[in-house]
Amino acid sequence: MQLPSLQKLNEARAARRAAVVVNDLSSGRAQAFIEREDFPAEWDAAISETLRSGRPNLATLDERPVFINVYLPPPRLVVIGAVHITQALARLAPVAGFDMTIIDPRTAFATVERFEGVELLADWPEDVLPTRPLDRYTALAAVTHDPKIDDYPIRAALDAGCFYVGALGSRKTHASRVERLRAAGLSEEAIGRIRAPIGLDIGAASPAEIAIAVLAEIIGALRHRDRREEGLAA
C-alpha cells in the first residue's frame, strides 16, 4: 500500500465514511475509494457491490487478481439524556469500541464533570442532529422519558435507518409514546422497530446494570444485522 492511499483511507474512516481499497495482489498497488465518489467505470460494479454488502472479496479486475477490502464506519452510540444510566454507559461503550455522543438540553444534567472523556452536547436534539446526522451505523438510545426531548430524535433515528433505536420508559410511558408517534404519521413498521422496554431482560436493577443491558442489546442488534445482511448477500 502506498502512503497517499493509506492517508485517504484513514481520513475517510475518521470522517465516518465507508471506504474501499482495491489491492493488486501481484504489484502491491493499492487504490482507495470513498463512498459517493465517482469510481472508474470498469471497476464501478465491483466497488459498489462491495460497499453495499460490506464484505471484502477476491476478484479479477483488468485481468489482474485483486483483493477488495471494505471499511465501514465504526458503530456510534448517541444517547439522548445525560442521566445516571448514561454515566455508566459513558464508561462501558468506549471499551466495546463505540464512539459515543450524549445530547441533553438540560444543563443541570449535561455537565462535563459527570461525563469526562465523552462528547457531550448541552443542546436540543432538534438543533444538534441536523448538523451531525444519524446514519445506519449509529445506535440511538433515548433515556430522558420526556417526550419534549425524546420524541424528535426517536423519529430522526427511525428515518435515518439507525441499526438500533431504544427508548426508556415503562409500558405505560411507551404506550402513550406509540400513540403520539402514530398520530404524527409514523408507520406501524417503524414504530415496531423501537426497542421498549429498553435493554435485554437480565433483571437489571441499578443504573449500571441497566446500562449493561442496553449495551448488550445494542451489540446484539449490530451483530444480528451483520448476519442478516450476509444472509441477503449470500
Binding site: 493509506l6 474512516r13 468506549p94 464512539d99 459515543m100
Partner: peptide, 19 residues
C-alpha cells in the same frame, strides 16, 4: 473511533510509524 480503539488500530499505526 474512540481513543482506546484508535491506539490499537493497525492502519492508524501504519501511517504513524511510516511518518
Amino acid at each position: 473511533m474512540t481513543n482506546e480503539a484508535k491506539m490499537l488500530d493497525p492502519l492508524e499505526i501504519a501511517e504513524a510509524w511510516h511518518r
